[in-house]
């Protein structure tokens, strides 16, 4: 999305700390809906969220939120809620006192009622009158979310919001964020977990080493992630014969036999997995094991960056 409807806009934004480039020439614009900011730890996700939240100055480029410049503009917080990754909340405050404080600082007409609504929304009524210091990690996460959405902002930024939540709380939070997105809010959340983003996000921004590696619809990103060169380790009844048979396949561009292991380099995941059984059968070889070797998220991100 671009133009006046875009709630969150980065235009050729970079951010560096001394000689270290944390975010490198990133551009995107997002409208209502849920977008996942996906990348490994240290990729630059928090830096991007902090720049959108006006807590960091971009070294280059322009960041705007709801049509306003985010940096040095406290007025922007009327329409933005931020859930930071750090757990820090004053331990002596009860959950309710923390959310009511957020409501009063937002100058809401009825802070008590707004806080009660937000606490109900995050399913924290039972613990609302206990000090935050006694909360579990997941409860702290939820009370921060209640504080961020107490003024019902049209834009919500969440940094690793699922950290510390148990599966039930995750499901509840996914449902809550979906409901908020359906009401027309723009929600951007960061995560280093592919499955989290897949379950929740409509769109994805993939960040690796400070650069935007991919962006768009999740299915398209998923296809890019799977249809890339892979390396498989194969164990069979006759590795040498199987290696020769693989080399006749278009999807395979290299095989190697070393230390009793057959390694196969393939052009794309799907083509090889469809062909492997047929090739083995044709060569009269029994397959014992077929395992991808480089399916870490890090290698996926590195590949996505290299192809841009």
């Amino acid at each position: 999305m671009s133009g006046p409807d875009a709630a969150l806009v980065l235009e050729r934004v970079s951010r560096w700390y001394g000689n270290v480039v944390a975010v490198n020439d990133v551009s995107f614009s997002l409208g209502p809906g849920i977008t996942g900011l996906l990348g490994p730890n240290g990729a630059g996700k928090t830096t991007i969220l902090h720049m959108l939240a006006g807590l960091l100055r971009p070294s280059a480029g322009r960041v705007s939120v709801g049509g306003q410049v985010a940096w040095r503009n406290p007025a922007v917080y009327r329409s933005v809620g931020l859930v930071p990754e750090r757990e820090a909340v004053h331990a002596f405050l009860t959950g309710r006192a923390f959310v009511e404080m957020a409501a009063r600082l937002q100058r809401l007409p009825d802070p008590r009622a707004a806080a009660a609504r937000a606490i109900t929304t995050v399913d924290l009524e039972g613990a609302a009158d206990r000090p935050v210091g006694t909360y579990s990690k997941g409860m702290r996460q939820r009370v921060k979310i209640a504080g961020a959405l107490v003024h019902e902002p049209p834009i919500l930024l969440l940094d690793e919001p699922f950290n510390g939540m148990d599966p039930r709380q995750r499901l509840h939070m996914i449902g809550l964020l979906r409901t908020m997105a359906e009401a027309g809010r723009a929600i951007l959340f960061s995560s280093h977990i592919l499955e989290e983003v897949e379950r929740l996000a409509d769109g994805v921004l993939v960040i690796h080493a400070g650069r935007l590696a991919a962006s768009g619809d999740f299915r398209e990103i998923r296809r890019l992630m799977t249809d890339r060169p892979h390396t498989f380790v194969v164990r069979s009844s006759d590795d040498r014969r199987l290696a020769a048979a693989f080399m006749t396949e278009a999807a395979v561009f290299g095989t190697e036999l070393r230390d009793g292991r057959l390694t196969v380099r393939v052009a794309e995941f799907g083509g090889f997995t469809r062909a492997v059984a047929r090739v083995a059968r044709g060569a009269s070889v029994s397959l014992f094991e077929v395992a991808p070797t480089d399916d870490s998220l890090e290698s996926v991100f590195a590949y996505l960056v290299s192809r841009r």
């Binding site: 917080y77 820090a88 004053h90 923390f98 600082l105 937002q106 100058r107």
Partner: peptide
């Protein structure tokens, strides 16, 4: 230092 200030800094309040 401990991050609790963020909850005040991200409100529409004059510094």
């Amino acid at each position: 230092e401990d991050g609790t200030a963020v909850h005040v800094l991200t409100k529409p309040i004059r510094r």
